[in-house]
Design a protein around this nucleic acid. Structure first.
Length: 529
DNA sequence: GCCGTTTTCGGCCCGACTGTTTTCAGTCG
């Protein structure tokens, strides 16, 4: 059975969880987590490296010991240390860690004193009132566990960026009206323009005594207040989106924004860099001893470690530090850079607006070009249209890639088009090899221009089909065709890490809306993100 | 368990809030 990076990540994460419950050395635990993170971000299969005998210790956070364990997992699917851990403590305890309020220490207590091994055990113990008597637990904790377990019916929902934006923008406008407030800005994964966000992090700068936290708690959309202090508060909106609010003085704005934006992996490395220079960095500023040396702006915070400010979207510890150090930070694409859209539909097929409406809307945005790319399978129906209308319509096409990788239209038709956008709309369940071969074959077609929504995923709804994306990327380079970043909030593929790969391979990506109405042009901001 | 412009040993990001305490551990981000 082939062992994927995700399998090794799962083993390392479980080892880390179990060691933590056992109260082992926390730095040893962190080493497993760091290694898991490295493998999670890796763009190629580590099993292949093992096969080729490439040194795994070149990977960050992988030393002699973990390299050996990776080999062991690749060969046997597991590692002796995990199996031994499982003998000492039940593996099912890791699921308890996912409950908010339960960390390793409390899980250990629950297991040791009450024999709780599973979520079901936990629920029973709570219902019997046996938890509140444990040391470090109490009435409130037990009640919280009961509430959480009841509410927890398999929903660990993340919000699509476009959905979160609606809540974020309204809330920010509302908070700005609190007396004494200076700046209100969304940080976290929202500011990083991730595809989905787990919660919304809001940073506020305000003069001392501003009632902005009270204003948040009084917001009409707040369903539950989870934490409520003088500098931070956490609430859950009725829509279930969790909001973390943090308030600092205005001269800490840069430090707090940097701190709250993350990602976690980026922040850890960043603080280490500061530490190496004898500096301490926190959300209030950068300090040498007691003296604050920076913090008003993000630029000032990055400058103390000798780096230019890294754009939020790049803060992933995936090479941005090296790039910043070498003065090679990329200039990011911005919305205003877009000159056109190469994938839109009209009401001739399944769109809502006419070709003319779409063209006028595009012109209004300042676009220089627009490709009308209605669907191919419907085009056969369009034979009934008069030839003049058909010809007007024949500028571009979104042609189906059929199961065998052939295109859904004959060459003499495709050859007359300016642009052929190919896409998979069927047979999502093929094996990785078949799916990959299918798409590669389609890309080999002489008229093929752009591979649309290359992974086929619908966020929250449909997983990507199983495809060897690095091969697709290399094929695009070989064939001189392009890959799409579909700006629809549910798609947003090509995904970020593969965009980076495309860039490194020198392949252009086309940010397209796949618009089915003039309103959909607004989605371009998410594609750019 | 990893790692090195201070290091092959001795470090490893940092602070707020909650609940249970009676000065703080645990958890979270």
């Amino acid at each position: 059975m082939p062992v994927h990076n995700a399998d090794i990540v799962a083993v390392f994460d479980e080892v880390a969880d179990l060691l933590e419950i056992e109260g082992e050395n926390r730095f040893c635990i962190r080493a497993y987590r760091n290694a898991a993170r490295t493998l999670r971000d890796l763009q190629h299969e580590v099993a292949t490296m093992v096969e080729k005998g490439e040194p795994l210790t070149d990977l960050p956070g992988i030393g002699e010991d973990l390299a050996r364990k990776i080999k062991e997992i690749v060969e046997t699917g597991t590692t002796v240390i995990l199996e031994e851990d499982r003998k000492r403590v039940p593996g099912t305890l890791t699921e308890l860690l996912k409950i908010t309020g339960l960390g390793p220490k409390r899980v250990q207590t629950l297991y040791r004193d009450l024999g709780v091994r599973t979520l079901d055990d936990l629920r029973k113990a709570a219902e019997q009132g046996r938890i509140k008597a444990l040391p470090g637990f109490g009435d409130k904790t037990e009640q919280h566990l009961l509430d959480t377990l009841r509410a927890r019916t398999g929903k660990e929902r993340r919000f699509m960026l476009a959905i979160a934006a609606q809540y974020a923008e309204a809330l920010i406008a509302y908070l700005k009206e609190a007396p004494g407030v200076k700046k209100v800005v969304a940080a976290g994964s929202y500011r990083q323009a991730k595809e989905t966000i787990g919660d919304l992090d809001i940073l506020v700068t305000a003069r001392t005594g501003s009632p902005v936290i009270d204003r948040l708690v009084a917001y009409r959309e707040v369903g539950e207040v989870l934490a409520y202090g003088t500098t931070k508060a956490t609430v859950r909106l009725i829509c279930n989106l969790q909001v973390d609010l943090r308030v600092v003085e205005d001269d800490s704005y840069g430090a707090a924004l940097q701190y709250l934006t993350g990602s976690k992996a980026h922040s850890i490395v960043f603080r280490q860099l500061a530490q190496q220079r004898g500096l301490k960095i926190n959300e209030y500023g950068v300090f040498r001893g007691e003296k604050r040396v920076a913090g008003e702006t993000e630029e000032s915070v990055y400058a103390v470690v000798g780096l230019p400010s890294v754009p939020p979207e790049l803060r992933e510890n995936r090479g941005e530090f090296e790039a910043a150090k070498a003065g090679r930070l990329p200039i990011l694409v911005e919305l205003k850079d877009l000159k056109g859209d190469l994938h839109v539909h009209t009401k001739v097929m399944d769109g809502r607006n006419s070709l003319k409406d779409m063209a006028l809307a595009a012109r209004k945005r300042g676009f220089e070009y627009l490709a009308i790319t209605d669907h191919s399978k419907h085009l056969t129906i369009a034979k009934g249209l008069d030839s003049e209308r058909l010809l007007i319509h024949m500028e571009g096409i979104e042609v189906d890639i059929l199961e065998d990788g052939s295109l859904d239209l004959p060459d003499h038709v495709l050859g007359r088009l300016e642009l052929v956008v190919g896409a998979v709309h069927s047979h999502f369940g093929l094996s990785q090899q078949k799916q990959t071969e299918r798409i590669l074959r389609a890309m080999d077609h002489p008229y093929f221009s752009i591979l649309a929504h290359p992974s086929g995923r619908l966020i929250d709804e449909r997983d990507p089909y199983d495809v060897d994306m690095p091969r697709i990327v290399r094929k695009a380079r070989e064939r001189g065709c392009y890959l799409e970043v579909n700006a629809h909030p549910e798609r947003l593929d090509l995904a970020d890490t593969y965009c980076q790969m495309a860039k490194e391979e020198g392949i252009m990506v086309s940010i397209n809306t796949d618009a089915h109405s003039i309103l959909d042009f607004e989605n371009l901001r998410y594609g750019v993100g």
